[in-house]
Simulated scan of single mutants.
Amino acid sequence: MQAFITRETLPSLPPPSTLKGPIAWMRQNLFSSVGNTIVTVVLVLAILAALIPFINWAFIKADWIGSSRDDCTSGGACWVFVYVHLKLFMVGLYPEAETWRVLLVGMILVVTLAGLMIKGVPFKKYLQLFALIAFPIIAFMLLSGGSFGLPHVETNFWGGLLLTLVIAIVGIVAAFPLGILLALGRRSSMPIVKAICVVFIEVWRGVPLITVLFMSSVMLPLFLPEGMEFDKLLRALVGITLFQSAYLAEVVRSGLQAIPKGQYEAANALGLTFWQGMYKVILPQALKIVIPGIVNSFISLFKDTSLVLIIGLFDLLATIQGAFASPKWLGYAIEGYLFAALVYWVFCFGMSRYSQRVERSLKTTN
């Protein structure tokens, strides 16, 4: 027998598949006992029993391209309904000749967000200033028009996914700083400031969003000077921003309360003013703690945009409901709702995954 001796350390071998990896995870979580094995098998069979017919209806027997319901002849899902109304679902009644403006705004938004999310992109501070200051102005001028030779497009013609994103993005961006100020005001030592913030937060949190939208659409013009009119979309944005800021204020306040008292004392010991201490010491820690709550509020706001239908604004869900209510397309509500669910899920899942990535980068999760 020959022996092989080496003075070099051999590389470590990976653990066996029975101890780490998918097989080990399934043995530990799905087949760890007889009872778990039976439950797993029953659930898998039930899922397959429901999933196989759905896949057959939604994909295998589905009709994908056409111009009318007469092209749906296979007996499966009629995705022709979505194909025919895709432009309506995306931009509503926005003039077809001007849809390039919507595409341009979308491209700028995607490039800006990609630059902010990807690590290693230079000049991120300037990109952040562009996203907060320049982009909203550029987007409004392109979408609304009326300057630089662009035809004016009234907000009544905005709809579909375009309107959903406008309401969600403006609501998120405007409500976040207002929510922080309300949270700081509620914890203020000045009685008047604290009382105003408490009343504001509790009133707006105690009123349903539908009521807020009605109020912003019907009552807000009553408080304006005579002859001054607010656009219907602007009224909805004001109401949603105030409503969402009250919820964000409580989320941020929970983060402020989680900060040890020693951090406040340390900021004072360094000679920092109140606002300097909040900006440099307290808020970075507090916001890091409440990232899940903040993102949860953002996701909730994105889905609540569908309520603007009650004041005559046609977002994504409203345009889909209007399309399958047409006599030409009666009976295709399932395809419409599935398409809406897919779009909402993509955006909400994207926000959730990005928040988890931020948490991992800030090491707020195990």
Rank of each mutant, 00 (worst) to 15 (best):
V207Q: 01
L143K: 13
Y264H: 08
R353C: 13
G160H: 08
E335D: 00
L224K: 08
I201L: 05
V105F: 04
E335H: 00
L163K: 05
G145F: 07
S297E: 15
L129N: 10
Y126P: 00
V80M: 01
N156W: 12
I137L: 15
F200L: 07
S297M: 13
Y279T: 11
S68F: 06
I310S: 13
L248E: 09
V198E: 15
W329E: 05
K125E: 12
Y83E: 10
T365A: 11
P122D: 02
I289Y: 12
F223V: 14
A114M: 14
S300R: 09
S216N: 10
L242H: 05
G159K: 02
A323H: 02
N268C: 08
L88S: 12
A62C: 08
A62M: 05
T37F: 01
T6P: 12
S361H: 08
I133S: 07
W275S: 09
G76M: 04
M219T: 14
A97R: 14
G227Y: 03
D63R: 00
G171V: 11
K61G: 02
P327A: 09
M228L: 15
A46C: 03
F4N: 09
G227N: 02
V173A: 15
A269T: 10
V308P: 00
A258R: 08
L142H: 13
I311C: 03
T73C: 00
V84I: 08
N268S: 12
L161I: 07
R235V: 06
L283K: 05
F31D: 01
L242P: 07
P221Y: 11
F89V: 04
A246R: 04
V343D: 03
G171Q: 08
L161D: 02
W204S: 07
K261Y: 06
V111H: 05
S67Q: 13
L317H: 06
V173E: 15
S355T: 01
I196T: 12
V218Q: 04
A340G: 05
T211G: 10
R187C: 01
G159Y: 03
I282T: 02
F157L: 09
G293D: 05
L129T: 08
R253E: 06
G322L: 10
V308H: 02
L116W: 14
D231V: 06
S147D: 08
S188A: 07
S326C: 01
A114G: 15
K87H: 09
S300Y: 03
S74L: 02
Q244F: 06
F230Y: 10
E8W: 10
L309H: 06
I118P: 06
I311N: 04
F135V: 00
L362G: 03
S188C: 04
F339Q: 11
L88M: 12
G331M: 08
R235I: 05
L317T: 14
E229H: 14
G106D: 04
A46T: 01
R235Y: 09
